[in-house]
């Protein structure tokens, strides 16, 4: 309850700040949308020049891309600036102020770093998914859709977890901007379906850095339905990944509060 209040307060504050420069606000909103449309546009060009990706026709791939955009959008709204914000607070020696507030530090930081532009992405992604699902004749009001939404929320925790890991590493090691850069590059592996990659990478993207759940598994659920085994493969690694991130955060906080940064 308090968290909802906080996060809306923050979003409101950022929105008002950005809105003070109206042109910039509208162009930025537009730019975010344009950036998202590039993926589907590239897909269209690839599919009109080639037979496309094995196992995926154009609309299926479009649905895949749309899913990716939704997840990126959620990640951006609620977690994408978390690591960056924390790292710069550590760098500037200004982290103490977050510990002085009577609220769980991680939740407070998440509220502070809310980014409303991510909602534009969620909207664009939803439109792309709805459009391609209609073209494919997939009914949208089924259990599969519920599972799809559930998997998308699961996928959000990969982004959140990654941000928490990078933030924690900022306390445990110096210069973890490197990890942030690495994470952003690794995220790009989610842009194409799992079956494109070799077996080693597939394993890595499913179990170790479970980014496959941010696009591949949810799209599969809508296209081919959900199986228990597939859901387990999609969800369990994320649960482990996220738990590890929280453990790491607690270690980091312990270290910070005993060593003073």
């Amino acid at each position: 309850m308090k968290y909802t209040k906080l996060i809306t307060r923050c979003a409101g504050i950022w929105l008002m700040r950005d809105f003070a420069y109206k042109y910039d606000f509208f162009i930025k909103t537009l730019a975010v949308a344009v950036y998202d449309v590039l993926g589907p546009l590239i897909a269209l060009f690839i599919y009109s020049a080639t037979p496309g990706l094995p196992g995926w026709n154009f609309y299926q791939f479009l649905l895949f891309q749309g899913t990716l955009i939704i997840v990126f959008g959620l990640g951006r709204t609620f977690s994408a600036s978390l690591a960056w914000w924390t790292l710069s607070a550590i760098y500037l020696g200004e982290f103490d102020q977050y510990l002085l507030k009577p609220y769980p530090t991680l939740l407070y930081l998440m509220a502070l770093t809310v980014d409303h532009y991510g909602l534009v992405e969620v909207a664009v992604g939803t439109t792309v998914v709805t459009y391609s699902a209609t073209q494919l004749g997939i009914p949208l009001l089924t259990i599969s859709t519920l599972i799809y939404i559930f998997l998308i929320i699961t996928a959000f925790f990969v982004h959140l977890g990654s941000n928490i890991i990078i933030s924690s590493m900022g306390f445990l090691a110096v210069k973890s901007e490197a990890l942030l850069q690495l994470y952003m590059n690794l995220m790009d592996f989610a842009r194409y379906p799992l079956n494109v990659y070799g077996p080693g990478l597939r394993f890595f993207l499913t179990f170790l850095f479970p980014i496959a759940v941010t696009s591949f598994f949810p799209a599969q659920v809508l296209l081919k339905g959900a199986g228990i085994k597939m859901l387990a493969i999609a969800i369990i690694p994320v649960a482990i990944y996220f738990t590890i991130s929280l453990l790491l955060w607690n270690t980091a906080m312990k270290k910070y509060r005993s060593a003073g940064g």
Binding site: T50, P51, G52, N185, Y192, V196
Partner: peptide
């Protein structure tokens, strides 16, 4: 160190497209 990663992505993407043609 990290940018060659995106080359790996493009490598696999086009490999599967070319092998499908």
């Amino acid at each position: 160190l990290t940018t060659p990663l995106s080359l790996i992505i493009y490598y696999y993407l086009w490999k599967s497209i070319y092998s499908y043609m």
